[in-house]
């Protein structure tokens, strides 16, 4: 629709709605803690617990502990949990009546999606950066370039997951239904991302391994986890005997997936939902 009436600009609306997301999130301390606490706890628990039984690497110098192996996956889990928390606010906003207020304002729905996604992505990225501080205790040789790249990856990955969360949340009437979808979609996606165990090679002779290989290979999250791992530890410390995508492929996959999911979010929000008619 052409916008002849002076006033509300796309950028300002996006900024303002994104700011609102941030303010709301960080003023609810239980959310901040909830999104970061569980993955942190799991990381420490599994990291130390499985340390003795897990071993990848071809020599003592490149040997990776499970605590180290599991770190990128935990980081991505934090992004995911935060993305879930922030997009649940779509459902809350609808129930509370705020969303309807935005929908009847003279602003485009694209601006609304952009604001919501930008806000959610920044929140998830901030949470991810906080968790990244834990990596200071790991055996990592830090460079500025590396930190910048990691933050950029965190941001794009956050956007990707926020868009997925938004698209599901838009159609939901209750937060319970949303949790179910998340458990059926996002958690399996995370478990099959190389976060918890490496991607098996093709041709091991076992068909289960082949299926796992393909499922994990097409999972965009696998590429996100792999990017974090490669930027954190460098490519010489990857698990020997397992499949790992190349940097270039992973970057392309992550960007394309994010663009597609964003497009999905934009498309989904053009529909009115039964929640508006309650």
């Amino acid at each position: 629709m052409a916008d002849q009436t002076p006033g509300s600009s796309f950028v300002q609306v996006t900024q303002s709605l994104a700011w609102r997301e941030l303010a709301r999130f960080f003023r609810q301390r239980n959310r901040v803690v909830g999104a970061i606490g569980t993955p942190l706890f799991m990381w420490l628990l599994f990291g130390f617990g499985l340390d003795q039984s897990f071993s990848v690497g071809n020599s003592p110098e490149t040997e990776t502990s499970f605590l180290e192996y599991y770190f990128p996956g935990s980081l991505v889990l934090i992004l995911m949990f935060t993305a879930i928390y922030t997009t649940i606010s779509v459902i809350e906003d609808r129930q509370a009546g705020f969303l309807q207020g935005v929908l009847v304002a003279p602003v485009s729905r694209q601006a609304m999606v952009a604001g919501k996604v930008l806000g959610g992505s920044i929140i998830a990225m901030i949470q991810g950066v906080l968790f990244l501080l834990a990596a200071l205790f790991l055996d990592v040789d830090w460079t500025v370039m590396q930190v910048v790249s990691l933050v950029a990856i965190l941001f794009v990955a956050s956007m990707m997951m926020t868009c997925v969360g938004f698209s599901f949340a838009w159609k939901m009437e209750s937060t319970q239904g949303f949790h179910a979808i998340m458990n059926l979609v996002l958690m399996p996606m995370w478990l099959l991302s190389g976060a918890f165990f490496p991607v098996p090679q093709m041709g091991t002779g076992q068909w289960t391994q082949d299926v796992l290989h393909w499922v994990m290979k097409v999972n965009p999250l696998t590429h996100v986890v792999s990017l974090v791992r490669q930027f954190l530890y460098g490519s010489d410390r990857l698990a020997e005997g397992f499949w790992e995508p190349s940097l270039r492929v992973s970057i392309v996959v992550m960007l394309v997936a994010t663009a597609l999911f964003y497009g999905w979010a934009i498309r989904v929000c053009q529909r009115s939902t039964s929640g508006d008619l309650k």
Binding site: T5, S9, Q95, G97, A105
Partner: peptide, 29 residues
């Protein structure tokens, strides 16, 4: 149009001024 829905469309976590400021942006003030 100025619209007041039945459900409370104000944001409890924001101050009164912040609520109004977000609304002002939506209407291009």
């Amino acid at each position: 149009l100025g619209v007041v829905f039945q459900a409370p469309g104000v944001d409890g976590k924001l101050s009164v001024r912040e609520n109004l400021a977000v609304q002002a942006v939506l209407y291009g003030l």
